[in-house]
């Protein structure tokens, strides 16, 4: 299996938000939701001096996606095809699932119940329930899977003014992301309490990484208390919403 991953180089990042806006434009993400966003951190003292850096954030496409765990949708068997080898894998998938070929955590919109359990479960706050739709659905960064299928890079990678976002297959030892993670020490945003194998990594000055972890590493095991509503509850809520609108 491959695993798509991204390294964000804070040496380069200037905190300009181009990534967030390219994402919004590409997928017409409604305000105020974000699939990709940037937070300012500092200036604040660290053990290595003052730091003023940025947290460019998005879905981490985790190795152990807790959002998938809590999804209440009935799993159905799906077939996934590796475009490189032509091989297929069959897997039981819920409405949100981890693609066994490329490691992307994706949402099957047709099957999403709109219950919001995955939104509550994500310790990174990377998902939202799109309430602008008549039937709200969960949504988030897909690493631009549709673009990847057409040979394009993710929209945020393409627009980054300083090429701070490096994208690739981390299982490929010849890839740049592999090198940056395994040789240059790019780190994913984890803590003692929360380590679910995120696949977005950060490189940067020591002080900036220190501030990033202090401010942004998740500590709450958010998924443990998520109670997914029954399908019936979700349907009732959806019908009620449509009635209210009428």
């Amino acid at each position: 299996m491959s695993q798509y991953a991204m390294v964000i180089d804070l040496h380069r990042c200037v905190g300009c938000h181009a990534c967030a806006l390219a994402c919004r434009a590409e997928w017409n993400v409604p305000v105020p939701y974000h699939r990709s966003w940037v937070e300012d951190l500092g200036p604040e003292e660290t053990s290595e001096g003052l730091s003023y850096t940025f947290f460019p954030a998005m879905c981490n496409h985790c190795d152990h996606p807790v959002c998938v765990e809590v999804c209440p949708a009935e799993p159905i068997e799906k077939e996934f095809r590796d475009p490189k080898t032509g091989k297929t894998i069959k897997m039981a998938a819920k409405a949100t699932y981890k693609n066994p070929i490329n490691g992307l955590v994706l949402i099957d919109k047709d099957r999403c119940l709109g219950c919001g359990a995955c939104v509550d479960a994500c310790p990174y706050g990377a998902r939202y329930l799109d309430d602008t739709l008549d039937k709200p659905k969960a949504d988030k960064c897909t690493f631009c899977v549709e673009r990847l299928e057409h040979g394009e890079v993710p929209a945020c990678v393409k627009t980054c003014p300083v090429d701070a976002r490096i994208f690739g297959d981390i299982t490929d030892k010849d890839s740049e992301v592999y090198r940056l993670v395994h040789k240059e020490g790019a780190k994913s945003l984890t803590s003692k309490e929360v380590n679910i194998g995120p696949n977005v990594y950060y490189l940067g000055k020591k002080k900036d990484i220190e501030l990033l972890f202090k401010k942004c590493a998740p500590h709450k095991r958010t998924w443990e208390n998520v109670k997914a509503p029954s399908r019936r509850d979700v349907l009732v809520a959806a019908i009620k919403k449509i009635r209210d609108k009428v």
Binding site: H17, K158, T159, P161
Partner: peptide, 14 residues
């Protein structure tokens, strides 16, 4: 100079 890149504002011209 910029190639295929635009900044946050450039992306928001729409």
């Amino acid at each position: 100079t910029n190639g295929h890149r635009v900044c946050a504002r450039g992306n928001s011209g729409i």
